[in-house]
Design a protein around this nucleic acid. Structure first.
Lengths: 229, 229
DNA sequence: TTAATTTTGCGTAAATATGACGCAAAGTTA
DNA sequence: TAACTTTGCGTCATATTTACGCAAAATTAA
């Protein structure tokens, strides 16, 4: 059997694009590096893949140890291979993107970082490596995916109102959705469970509270239909 | 600066799912391995990534040397990391998929293979490694992508008729498209150039011949519109 | 040679989905 | 208590999708 040692091997990192949502803004969780290369520069939280762990395990480990975030929506984005992307040598980056509710987690910088911080996606600093490009790829993915998969809910509290969901979609897609048509479309999917309590916010008329109902969503899929905004 | 040699590194292969179309059937180009592991078993044409080449360079090199195919549509599919997917150790697979017109290439097995052959996608043998799963992923990608990107043309001759294009879509998506509505939809995109000659096939009324016109397609995109079947 | 048949290309009408907007109820603020 | 904002649900006009009619261009049969 052929040996695996005939070829010099590239290093493999897993880098995470972590999306959050707060105050009608999408934000990204970035890490300020302590070590070279790109010391004192903001980058995506990433790290080397260990030999016995899967990408997803690596992504979760990195999220937890470097940022304090855990148990979130996580999906592979793309694998980046631009030959000169890392000054240390040949390093591949398997990029994942995560959707996080920032209210649920205490963000904290791990020991290898100067700082970890949320940045408004419209005001990102220049990032190290090719991470600007990775971010752009992730943003594009989020914008298309949110239209036909119910992933937006991951960015909200478990219980949310229609106006909140509506505002989220307008923020992500950077365009307006006619309010009443948006409500109608969501409601006729029948994937939300109405939690009978009403919101006690400082708004005028209180809005109904909903939860995403994965059981109802599966029923929708089993009927051959699909979530589609 | 941190060294890259602190971690044991995984090996990285590039595996290609190569789609062809002939006789109203989608087929996949498979390779029968000469060496262990999975000797005498059909697998996707793949190989180890060289340290200084990009994924795409690797994919093209593998296609050319192992199957004789070159200059085709090629796109990254997904990176597979199931820990036990290769008996030799930790091997990642960066999978690409290619769309090929089988008439344009002389298929030939490279020296490392017993044989290289087209298989109807509805009658595939059991594949080595996790390649069955990779194929399934590629098929899903093809089915969704073909609806909103003009990639189907890659499977046809440069000049093709509407009935041919229509049949291709019905084959890929395994459902019927109302013939006249399909024609209409394609025509109003205005991305085809009519080559005035008519087909001399053994059919009844000859069909017009078209070519995909990438210049017209770009105009469509620049108008903010999109290819959509 | 002519009629019947198949295939192709283009059209129109019905059905469905999308987008624009009216309005009353439930609160808050003046 | 009146005016105002926000929310929830409805209706109607418009656009898009789907179903299907029909004639032209070839082949095959009589």
């Amino acid at each position: 059997m052929e040996s695996l040692d005939n070829f010099p091997k590239p290093s493999v990192t897993v880098d995470n694009v972590i999306f959050g949502y707060h105050d009608n803004k999408i934000s990204l969780l970035l890490l300020n590096r302590k070590e070279e290369p790109f010391a004192n520069t903001w980058t995506l939280p990433g790290g080397f893949l260990h030999i016995h762990e899967s990408f997803e395990q690596a992504a979760k480990r990195i999220l937890t140890t470097k940022t304090g975030v855990n148990d979130v929506f996580l999906e592979q984005l793309y694998t980046f291979d631009t030959p000169e992307r890392d000054p240390r040598g040949r390093v591949l980056s398997v990029a994942y993107y995560a959707l996080v509710n920032p209210h649920k987690y205490e963000i904290m910088a791990g020991s290898a970082a100067n700082d970890v911080q949320w940045f408004d996606w419209k005001a990102l600093p220049k990032l190290g490596f090719d991470h600007d490009f990775i971010v752009q790829t992730a943003v594009n993915r989020l914008k298309t995916k949110v239209l036909w998969q119910p992933i937006g809910f991951e960015l909200l509290d478990e219980r949310f109102t229609m106006p909140e969901l509506h505002a989220l979609y307008e923020t992500i897609l950077e365009r307006e959705f006619e309010r009443r048509n948006f409500y109608k479309r969501i409601m006729e999917l029948e994937i939300l469970k109405k939690v009978d309590i009403r919101r006690d916010g400082s708004r005028k008329r209180p809005a109904d509270l909903f939860e995403f109902d994965s059981k109802k969503y599966n029923e929708l899929i089993n009927k051959g239909l699909s979530f589609k905004i």
